[in-house]
Amino acid sequence: MNIDRPSSIREAYMRASSFLKEQGVSEAAACTELLLQHVLGWDRTKLLLSWPESFPVERLAEWREMITRKAAGEPVQYIIGEQDFYGLSYAVTPAVLIPRPETELLVEAIVRLGSLRWPGQSPLVADIGTGSGAIAITIAVQCPQWRVWATDLSQAALEVAIKNGRRHVGERIEFLSGDLLAPIVERQAEVDILVSNPPYIPSADMPRLQKEVGQYEPHTALHGGEDGMNYYRRLLSEMDQLPSRPAIAGFEVGQGQAEAVEEMLKRQGKWAYTEIIYDLAGIGRHVLAWRS
């Protein structure tokens, strides 16, 4: 790709976006724009107003490296180290999954149910497998009176989550190292709300994942076992080790899994209500359960 000494920022954009499109990068124009904003340190408005300006020579080497990484398939979010979620910016590294917009629906549902059940009170929320911390932190921002804990088995992921937590809510979230509910069971804490976006990709689907996901995002946060349901079984089983069952539980699920996870919850016979939350495409993305 020829990006040496583009005459303007517009030319740098045109060359890079054309190159990425030729390399089969989806949404090449949008990716190029995000990378330009990052390398120049500008927001989108400043970028669009500055198309005719000369591209800074001192940024060319970094620009070339970023475009090369994107052409190889690396997610833009890992290249720039940031991803927006529910109006906040989160640091992301290859140690954590990149937060997705559909997960915002799960946060909204948990906040809605919890606020109805405990108006003005301080329920304890546990985010299991927190990754970047996006779910736990967004809940803490939306409901500042709630107590929020977050667990993860990966120490590298917890370091990212702690960084994000301090950035947005200070020390309000307690981050715990351990596998699923283990650190909470150890404390015998009475959890009111349990929420999780666990690994849910079936074994057979792992080799067929989009390149940006399968080659770059952490497999431990993706692979859900032979049928993709291992972690839902474990979460429901480990709830029985708590002093009392959470009053509300919410899970993100893979495409085509919502009905099966809802049926697992119903078979327990311990929930008064269940609900599937659908995204804008009509896909069941989240399953909720709550006691009367």
Rank of each mutant, 00 (worst) to 15 (best):
Q155R: 11
Q155T: 13
Q155H: 08
Q155G: 12
A156I: 02
A156Q: 09
A156P: 00
A156T: 03
A156W: 00
A157K: 01
A157N: 05
L158N: 01
L158R: 00
L158W: 03
E159G: 12
E159R: 14
E159A: 15
V160S: 02
A161C: 09
A161N: 04
A161G: 14
I162L: 08
K163H: 15
K163V: 02
N164Y: 04
N164D: 13
N164P: 12
G165Q: 05
G165C: 00
R166C: 12
R166S: 12
R166L: 04
R166T: 08
R166Q: 15
R166W: 10
R166G: 11
R166I: 06
R167D: 02
R167M: 12
H168I: 07
H168S: 08
H168Y: 05
H168G: 06
V169A: 13
V169P: 12
V169S: 01
V169Q: 02
V169Y: 01
V169C: 12
G170F: 09
R172Q: 08
R172M: 14
R172Y: 03
I173V: 11
I173G: 14
I173T: 06
E174T: 13
E174V: 07
E174R: 13
E174G: 02
F175K: 00
F175I: 02
F175A: 05
F175P: 06
F175V: 15
F175T: 05
F175S: 05
L176K: 06
L176W: 08
S177L: 12
S177A: 13
S177W: 03
S177K: 10
S177H: 14
S177Y: 07
G178T: 03
D179E: 12
D179R: 14
D179G: 01
D179Y: 10
D179H: 11
L180V: 09
L180A: 13
L180W: 04
L180R: 02
L180K: 04
L181M: 08
L181H: 01
A182P: 00
P183L: 01
P183V: 12
P183Q: 09
I184K: 11
I184H: 13
I184D: 11
I184Q: 02
I184C: 09
I184G: 13
I184Y: 05
I184A: 08
I184E: 06
V185K: 10
V185I: 15
V185L: 13
V185A: 14
E186G: 11
E186N: 14
E186C: 09
R187F: 08
Q188V: 05
Q188F: 03
E190W: 05
E190V: 14
E190P: 05
E190T: 14
V191S: 11
V191A: 07
V191E: 06
V191W: 08
V191N: 12
D192G: 09
D192R: 11
D192P: 10
I193V: 14
I193Q: 09
I193F: 11
I193P: 03
I193M: 03
L194D: 02
L194W: 10
V195K: 03
V195P: 01
S196A: 10
S196T: 02
S196P: 04
N197P: 05
N197F: 02
N197G: 07
P198A: 04
P198E: 00
P198T: 00
P198S: 04
P198D: 00
P198H: 00
P199N: 00
Y200S: 04
Y200C: 13
Y200G: 11
Y200W: 04
Y200D: 05
Y200E: 10
I201H: 06
I201K: 05
I201T: 00
P202G: 07
P202S: 10
S203K: 07
S203I: 00
S203M: 10
